[in-house]
């Protein structure tokens, strides 16, 4: 059976996708909605596209409007991430995901960060708090 990892739902949904890990926090406003590429030069994923990925990052950064505005624009162009996995979800980030019905979880069980890497495929069932490696 494929290995499963427990997590905690912030915003519901069920998706499949490729994992993309970021060690830096994310400001959705500093992602180009046309390409899904990160435009913040100092960011570890600068120039890479987050479109369609299950995006794993430690926390959100930015003010009370930019996460929702950024996520909304990405959703309109279809360049949004398939889902988001975070460590620290502040309210602006969590609320933006909930409002835009974008799947988001936190509290991944311990070995997730050790055992999974960029490019691995996974299925995330945010409603039931389960990530399955596929």
């Amino acid at each position: 059976m494929d290995k499963q990892y427990k997590c905690h739902k912030i915003s519901g949904g069920k998706v499949k996708g490729e994992l993309l890990f970021s060690k830096d926090g994310l400001c959705f406003y500093l992602i180009d909605p046309k390409t899904g590429k990160i435009i913040e030069k100092e960011h570890c994923l600068y120039g890479q596209s987050i479109a369609g990925k299950i995006l794993v990052f430690p926390y959100g950064k930015g003010s009370s409007v930019v996460q929702a505005d950024g996520m909304y624009q990405l959703k309109m162009t279809g360049m949004n991430p398939a889902a988001m996995i975070v460590v620290n979800a502040d309210t602006t980030l969590a609320a933006s995901a909930i409002i835009l019905k974008a799947p988001m979880v936190n509290k991944m069980s311990g070995d997730f960060y050790k055992e999974l890497h960029n490019g691995d495929m996974a299925e995330l069932d945010a409603d039931n708090g389960i990530l399955t490696r596929i």
């Binding site: 009370s64 929702a68 602006t92 609320a95």
Partner: peptide, 9 residues
């Protein structure tokens, strides 16, 4: 207050 987003506030 928590760190509210525009929409949650």
């Amino acid at each position: 207050t928590n760190r509210e987003s525009a929409q949650s506030a």
